[in-house]
Design a protein around this nucleic acid. Structure first.
Lengths: 245, 245
DNA sequence: CGCTCTTTTGAGTTACCTCAACCACGGTGG
DNA sequence: CCACCGTGGTTGAGGTAACTCAAAAGAGCG
């Protein structure tokens, strides 16, 4: 059962965001700036307040009382769930604009940790509710973002359930690349997370991720650069390998 | 990347529904009954109209133009996505109250087929939009349902990425059992879908599903009954095996 | 530079898959 | 009423992609 969620489409790649994805960040919402005047482009801007988290720190844990929702302003966050014996599944990586913690429940259902140093806006649930009441259009936007997130989750199910290790890694790299529209060198992507994070996101082991990347490197599809960066040398070949999505 | 979708919680098992799950069906919304007076308990009741689909028929396909959303009134539907080479991932099985096709995109992103004979309400997108405009509370309900759906999708990611075959099957059986709150013999569940449907939902092959069920049978955890029914003999042992969720 | 942590590489194992046969059931038609 | 057939499920035997365990090689940091 579960996970059917219907809700259809939007042609692939149309929406870059995932999660309660990419709710536009107003340009003037500077770091640490709290209460600001209403901004039609970013109704969330004036809510809650931002905070800088250092790398590898916990924002909230699975099971914690859920009083706020969060929006990533910059940096990267991983969300994961854990089985009793410690096996971990990373639900997703969040980047600027992504929201987390949205829900209608008493506790968070996954843990959120920063990968890099990250600025995060914390918005009390009550304030969000008030905003939804005041601006029905905003509630619609949230619904739309959540729906996109669900679509992404369904793509991930296909990946986890039916793709080979090579397909998984290729898909992952292409997604990362699509995510950050344009900024920086085209074809060069950031891989701030470690191999074990990638492994736990793709349902593999670190060794398999490493071996797969090595193979992609030796077949000239990618180049691994210093500082956690990576270059896509043959996007088309990678897309073929990825087999859809 | 994708699938992070934040949005927290609601303690497990709290919500039975999934998908834009289980939007209450008003008791008086009989089969085929279209336009009805407003019903506060089921604002959708008066929209669109219902139709009976025979078993194993297609409701809509991945890529079809998406003009309507659908709600399952009775029966069972499977939603799936397919890779170019035919590998299939079943996103979920829908039962009474579940919605599908909700989205803000031009095409459906998965295929919907009936498993059994099924009654489905078709609601034009425009009518749904109008209802959301007219009743902000309904939009909130939709958001809540979609969020629950997302949580379920995240559980499914854990299953697909990190569970063994035995854990997958045990989890699946328990979910099915939890789903149908109470109706019929406690501990007896319906398995109207075939082994290959189960396999494609759990990221396994039909043979592995069959072998795993046989093992559960021989260890006295379940009993397989005629007519696609199955009895859970030792729920606790199954829950142990399932390892969470 | 020494230390730690991560990544890579290697060797051997295994859970699950593939291929294939067999079986059980339900429908159909003679 | 029963032989036939088609479909779906089970069982078996062998193969393999990915895992586990282990060690070496980098990379980052004080």
């Amino acid at each position: 059962m579960s996970t059917h969620a219907a809700i259809a489409a939007h042609t692939h790649r149309a929406v870059p965001g995932y999660l309660v994805s990419a709710l536009a960040i107003s340009p003037n919402a500077g770091i640490g700036s709290a209460v600001q005047p209403r901004n039609p482009a970013d109704p969330l801007a004036s809510l809650g307040h931002s905070k800088v988290y250092e790398r590898e720190s916990t924002v909230f844990g699975e099971g914690d009382a859920a009083g706020s929702v969060f929006r990533v302003m910059s940096g990267m966050v991983r969300l994961y769930k854990m089985l009793p014996d410690g096996r971990r599944q990373i639900i997703g990586f969040l980047q600027a604009g992504d929201m987390m913690g949205l829900a209608f429940a008493a506790q968070y259902l996954y843990t959120a940790e920063t990968v890099t140093a990250t600025t995060i806006q914390r918005i009390p649930r009550l304030e969000l509710d008030a905003l939804m009441d005041a601006q029905p259009a905003f509630a619609r936007k949230l619904l739309s973002a959540t729906t996109s997130e669900l679509m992404a989750a369904q793509d991930q199910m296909v990946l986890l359930g039916r793709k080979t290790a090579a397909e998984k890694v290729a898909t992952f790299l292409l997604r990362l690349s699509d995510r950050k529209g344009g900024k920086g060198d085209e074809h060069t992507i950031d891989l701030p997370m470690g191999r074990s994070d990638i492994a736990d996101h793709l349902g593999l082991t670190t060794e398999t991720v490493s071996r797969t990347l090595t193979k992609l490197k030796s077949t000239r599809l990618i180049r691994i650069l210093v500082g956690g960066k990576l270059e896509l040398l043959d996007r088309d070949a990678l897309a073929d390998l990825a087999g859809g999505f």
